[in-house]
Design a binder for these strands. Structure first.
Lengths: 189, 189
DNA sequence: GCTCACATGTAATCCGTTACATGATTCT
DNA sequence: AGAATCATGTAACGGATTACATGTGAGC
């Protein structure tokens, strides 16, 4: 069977322990979401596919009268996960960043509007930085409990990433100060 | 008509001057590609749609017997572009990063394999950094010619972005040094 | 004569989101 | 009683990539 990145997110999550589809989503939302997001629309069909392929095994585990299926990774699933983790070749990286895109085309804006754009962008990353920082205590607790420090390190990476963008916005603003204003009047639009 | 981000990439590119679909792709490949990639499969159908909507205007401009259609942005297209550039609300940001994803799940790997993963990831970003640095002289020349400094600033931002990831890999390696090795032997898998 | 860059386009496919539909349990 | 959370799933849609198909012109 052909596995996509989403399949590996699920396998990876299940390797950390058996989970329901709902739990997988919840865990992903506070960890992988910031560098690989997944949605219910992928998770449930994919769980079915993975089970049919024998990479995971589902068991009914209702909480009261509430239906619930918990999935565990199989030996075959672990092999598939490891195969991916060690697979040679290029690592997929993709960025879609509307802020930088708008900035690139902002010669259609006035200087003032361009600076406002940078401010909006800065605020956005600052908020994301805060969001991640708020998760940190949970990750720290999880590390102490399970000894798994990778979640914490990944979160730190996510925070540093948002911090960089905040700094990049500041840097761009400084560069605009160097270039614009003093040349005042030569305004487009 | 509904416009997607790709439409605005095209409009933005055409605002900098009339271009063929081929030229739009070429320009995008050395500028927006790193934070918003586009492909021929989107460009040509989208050019048709945008022309039908009156946001751009195509003109036949063959180079010899070689067919070629050059598109210019219309007043209506400029309005649509500006509307987007100034549109309030959240800026879309999306990151898909296989390296960090694998790292997050690398408890299924040995310490050695995990460090190799970091090295691969570092090498990848270092290469991308170089790729971008190689474009810099072109961007500098373009600035001198056209006076458009936004391309240069955006490129600088792209370089800083790749540099950050190189640094993040180094940081992760240092953190592993703090955490692992000294606790040696407590190895998973 | 061959290869590379210029040039345009379509079809199949994949990947993913959003919206919808449904229902139980827990907490206030 | 009502809201929030737990829980599962599907259908429609949108966005983008890949592969394919075709052809010219320039330089070696």
């Amino acid at each position: 069977m052909e596995l996509g990145y989403t399949s590996y997110v699920i396998l990876g999550m299940l390797r950390k322990g058996p989970k329901s589809g709902y739990e997988i989503k919840a865990k992903a939302d506070i960890s992988t979401r910031f560098f690989w997001a997944i949605s219910y629309g992928q998770i449930y069909p994919e769980l079915k596919r993975l089970e049919e392929a024998g990479l995971i095994k589902g068991a009914s585990d209702p909480a009261g009268g509430r239906q619930r299926r918990v999935f565990s990774i199989t030996a075959s699933g672990e092999r598939a996960l490891r195969e991916w983790l060690m697979r040679p070749g290029d690592l997929h990286t993709e960025l879609r960043h509307e802020g930088v895109l708008r900035f690139f085309f902002s010669d259609a804006l006035s200087e003032k509007e361009r600076r406002e754009l940078l401010q909006t962008m800065r605020a956005r990353h600052d908020r994301l930085r805060e969001e991640l920082t708020a998760i940190a205590p949970e990750a720290e607790a999880a590390r102490k409990e399970t000894g798994d420090y990778l979640g914490l390190l990944t979160l730190e990476t996510g925070i540093a990433y948002q911090e960089l963008f905040v700094e990049l916005c500041d840097r761009l603003e400084r560069r605009l100060n160097e270039i614009e204003s003093d040349s005042g009047g030569a305004e487009d639009v």
